[in-house]
Structure formats: structure tokens, C-alpha cells
Design a protein around this nucleic acid. Structure first.
Length: 294
DNA sequence: CTATCTGTTCTGAC
DNA sequence: TGTCAGAACAGATA
């Protein structure tokens, strides 16, 4: 479930594993998954991996970048080379990130594999995407900067993510619901369905509340809880499992710390006596406690 | 079998 | 300009 914490986890994992390597080959089976020219990528060195919003940027030598969006079912899976038995560094550890699934570390490539990058040491990076909504684009630095600037709002962990900023943006969209506001990538980058529900639950604010009716103290609470829930997500590696020895691919991680998401019918974890309910807000499944969110 | 659900985002209609 | 259904796609689930 690639929202900000998951994508951040992937970024950190890849930074430990592919920086400094050369891409020696690239193949893809679905034209819409790879938007670029193979010749622009093969032969280039990986300089670094960054995250902006839910997007991953792999910076290559020369004026080239790979930009990934995992959308709903994308995964990036690093598969170490089989060469160095007994070497314990991260280079030699498999790593997965993105949409959780039972077959993380099953045979690769598999039916969901869209792109395969091969590095000069024999290791590989697989871009899997069951539903084919995700993409990888080859872009130059200017194009990347423009996208990062134009299409996304502040990063939650940036110092610009303040209550004043939220109030400013709130003036422009007074009639939207708070949930849609939080998920609008041009306002705050990286929040998706799960973390929006969780942050609003922690804040005691109903997802359907109109922006213009949110009080100052509620904005403060929402801001703090967005940060808290995202930090918790990153701390637990999102819903990512990086331990390939452990077969429990989709377990562990953040799934175990969610309080309302997909918990409809259960008792409120705040023990307020209420139950978690579900409704649709902006076309998205939305989970909340009717009793302690208002 | 059918109907409905799913973590994202973009487009086109109104 | 804001809002909303539908699309892009492929499952799993009831």
C-alpha cells in the first residue's frame, strides 16, 4: 500500500543497495509501464534515490532519472546477486516495498513483473504491478523538478507544513471535506486513504467535516496527528516487509497499528463504547468512530 | 455466476 | 472553478 511511509521505506532500502551500480540491462513487458527509451537508461550509474510525495526518483548519471509511481499495486523488489555467499551487507539482502502480497519473494519475475533492471554486479530490481496503474518514466532533471514543484504540495515533514499553511489552503477550499483536503496531493503530499482515516480518527474529527468548520485547535490536532501517524508508519516500515526469510510477507509493519482502517464493525479502540463505521467520502472507503469523532 | 470491493490519480462532463 | 463519475486494470471476496 504505497503511501508516504511505504515509499519512504523503499527509498531508504534502495539507497543502501543500488547506489553506485551501473544498469546493464532493462526489459519490460507492458508498454504503458515503462515510458521512456531503454537506451537512455542502460549504461548509466545510479547516483541516488529520493522520494517526493508517493513518487520514487532514481537519479542516474547524466541528465537522466527514473521516476516511479506505484499507484495501488506497484512493488519494487530488489533481488541480490547470487554471487557472494556469506556476505552480510544490505547489498546481499533481498528487499521489497510497495503493495503487500503473499508472493513478495516468490520466483521472479512473475506474472505481475512489468520491468526488470539488471545491475553490473548481477543484482536486479523488479517493478511489479498487478493492476498496471503504476508507471516508470525516464525524465531529465528539469522535468523532474517541474513535476515536483508544480504537482505536489508541501511534504509533511518539511518545515513549511504548518497550521498557518493549512489555514491558508483552507481558505481556498472552504466547502470540501477534511478527508478530501488531506488526500489532495497538491496541498499535502503523500497522504492516502489509510493515513487520512487514521489521522482523523486520532484527531477526533469526522472525515466529512467541511473545511470551513474546522477550528484552530482541530487544525493543530490534525497536523500533529498526520505527522504522528506517518512517523509511526515509517518506523514500522509501512506495510513493507524487508525480511525475506520471514515468509509473512504482508504481516507485521504498520498493518498491526491501524486503528480504524478496515475495522468496520469493531469496537472503538479508544474504548469510548462506540463502534467503527464505514462510509464513502469522495468515492473512497472511509472508516471512523461515530461516537468519538465529530 | 454475479456483484462488489480494493491501497491512486487523471480525464472529461456538467 | 468545483465536483463527480468513470477509466486505467486485475484480481479477491461474498
Amino acid at each position: 500500500m504505497p503511501e508516504l511511509p511505504e515509499v519512504e521505506t523503499i527509498k531508504r532500502g534502495l539507497n543502501k543497495r543500488i547506489v553506485g551500480k551501473n544498469i546493464t540491462d532493462l526489459s519490460f513487458d507492458w508498454p504503458k509501464s515503462f515510458l521512456g527509451k531503454k537506451e537512455d537508461v542502460v549504461g548509466r550509474e545510479v547516483k541516488g534515490v529520493e522520494r517526493r510525495a508517493k513518487v520514487i526518483r532514481i537519479n542516474l548519471s547524466g541528465d537522466y532519472n527514473l521516476l516511479f509511481h506505484l499507484k495501488m499495486t506497484g512493488q519494487l523488489i530488489y533481488r541480490a546477486a547470487q554471487l557472494r555467499q556469506g556476505f552480510a551487507g544490505p547489498q546481499n539482502q533481498d528487499f521489497s516495498g510497495g503493495h503487500p502480497d503473499h508472493n513478495w519473494h516468490a520466483k521472479l519475475p512473475n506474472s505481475a513483473t512489468r520491468i526488470i533492471f539488471t545491475f553490473n554486479d548481477g543484482s536486479k530490481l523488479f517493478f511489479n504491478d498487478l493492476r498496471k496503474f503504476g508507471w516508470c518514466k525516464v525524465l531529465n532533471n528539469d522535468q523532474i523538478e517541474k513535476i515536483f514543484c508544480d504537482e505536489y504540495g508541501v511534504e509533511p515533514f518539511d518545515s513549511k507544513f504548518t497550521v498557518d499553511y493549512l489555514l491558508l489552503r483552507a481558505k481556498k477550499n472552504p466547502n470540501r471535506t477534511i478527508k478530501q483536503f488531506l488526500m489532495d496531493q497538491t496541498i499535502v503530499a503523500g497522504i492516502g486513504n489509510i493515513y487520512a482515516d487514521e489521522a482523523l480518527f486520532s484527531s477526533g474529527v469526522l472525515p466529512t467535516r467541511k473545511i470551513k468548520e474546522i477550528s484552530l485547535s482541530e487544525w493543530k490536532s490534525i497536523r500533529e496527528n498526520v505527522l504522528k501517524i506517518l512517523e509511526l508508519g515509517i518506523k514500522h516500515g509501512g506495510t513493507t516487509d524487508s525480511d525475506y526469510v520471514n515468509a509473512e510477507g504482508e504481516k507485521g509493519g504498520m498493518q498491526n497499528y491501524l486503528k480504524v482502517y478496515r475495522k468496520a464493525g469493531e469496537s472503538c479502540p479508544k474504548e469510548c463504547g462506540g463502534k467503527i463505521d464505514r462510509m464513502v467520502v469522495g468515492g473512497r472507503g472511509t472508516h471512523f468512530c461515530e461516537n468519538c469523532q465529530s
